[in-house]
């Protein structure tokens, strides 16, 4: 019940509470101050935050750099689209189909991928992603190929004449917020559990971890599947949000964006990737209006952050706020985790 005790909240926690209040008010405040478009952008941003969180679970906590998360993201999107278009499913069964399909792909790919580490692991994940990208592009009758598969989204809930639908942008916003919030909560619980500490132990030194009885292969596999679950959940949400599934979602550049968001925001922190995604997506929206080659600026920002703030923006924020229990003073997140006796997930 730490969050309810305001006296014990750190400066960083207070920023988090302020941000949560802002997110709750977005559909009512943002259209007045800006316009509806930004409500959608913030909703999209939450989805991408979840995707970046899936990359972070693997790299930031387990030490596995994946360039293949797009596969589970894309399969989640296709799962929900197939549910609506081919099986005529209602909302929730299709939702579950999407999450299950993406997670099953992760469970399959993980059997082979987690036998490897570092660059070998990165290569095998990108190869898996490319194989299914080309398959999806080539099977137009099923996937719509590169043209994609537009969908009609049925109501989320329906009681007689009353229905809740994603076509109501306010409801859509809160729907995404609740699902993403639950996913982050689930991730936090896992990271606080012995399993989460095992992820970090494997990341820090898998040989030492083995000596205390941890099975590195099994733990990496669990992290991989859990990360795939988060990626597929974000894919499902993105398909529902964009009303469309496409083979482009499976391409490695989508995975690459997740990696960049995570690094800029701060790997190994619960909300760092969300901060990175938020910053770069807002920059993208503003800069792309004025200069079509805005990615050059984004690239420079990434280089600057990686060079001068190796712990990402969250690391900088923690330093600036002087958070009493999370100040980054060590050379890596491992030191932080040791000090906290936890997983660095504030």
């Amino acid at each position: 019940m730490r969050l309810l005790n305001f006296k014990k909240l750190s400066s960083l926690d207070l920023v988090g509470v302020g941000l949560l209040i802002f997110l709750l008010l977005v559909p009512y405040v943002v259209p007045v101050v800006l316009n509806d478009f930004w409500v959608n952008i913030i909703a999209e941003l939450m989805i991408w935050s979840l995707f970046a969180a899936s990359v972070n679970l693997l790299f930031g906590y387990t030490g596995l750099l994946s360039f293949g998360q797009a596969l589970y993201f894309g399969m989640g999107a296709y799962g929900v689209a197939f549910g609506f278009e081919y099986f005529d499913l209602s909302f929730w069964p299709a939702f579950l189909l999407g999450v299950s399909l993406g997670t099953l792909f992760a469970a399959f790919a993980g059997i082979f991928a987690v036998r490897l580490t570092w660059h070998y692991f990165a290569i095998i994940t990108v190869v898996f992603s490319l194989i299914f990208y080309f398959l999806a592009v080539g099977t137009k009758e099923l996937t719509g190929g590169d043209d994609g598969l537009p969908i009609s989204v049925p109501p989320v809930l329906k009681f007689g004449q009353f229905e809740l639908s994603l076509f109501d942008l306010t409801f859509q916003y809160y729907f995404i917020m609740v699902i993403v919030g639950l996913a982050f909560y689930m991730k936090w619980r896992v990271l606080e559990s012995p399993l989460g500490r095992a992820f970090v132990a494997i990341r820090e030194n898998d040989k030492r971890a083995s000596l205390i009885g941890l099975n590195a292969y099994k733990i990496r596999y669990l992290s991989f599947v859990l990360s795939g679950l988060l990626a597929s959940l974000s894919g499902v949400l993105f398909c529902l949000f964009s009303r469309y599934a496409t083979a482009q979602n499976l391409f490695w550049t989508v995975s690459g964006e997740g990696v960049v968001w995570m690094i800029v925001g701060g790997a190994g922190t619960l909300f760092g990737p969300a901060v990175g995604a938020a910053l770069l997506i807002v920059l993208r929206e503003e800069l792309s209006m004025y200069w079509e080659h805005y990615l050059l600026i984004v690239g420079v920002i990434v280089i600057v952050v990686v060079t001068f703030a190796p712990h990402g923006i969250m690391g900088l924020i923690k330093d600036l706020l002087g958070s009493r229990n999370s100040k980054l003073t060590g050379s890596d997140n491992g030191e932080l985790l040791e000090k906290q006796g936890g997983t660095g997930n504030e």
């Binding site: 316009n35 043209d147 009303r243 469309y244």
Partner: peptide, 24 residues
């Protein structure tokens, strides 16, 4: 549509972009 308040939109020449846009 939402930010620039376009009344009509001339579409892309990329079919994938078009199909992603049609339901919206």
């Amino acid at each position: 549509v939402q930010r620039h308040k376009a009344d009509f939109v001339l579409g892309s020449v990329h079919s994938g972009v078009n199909l992603a846009t049609v339901p919206i």
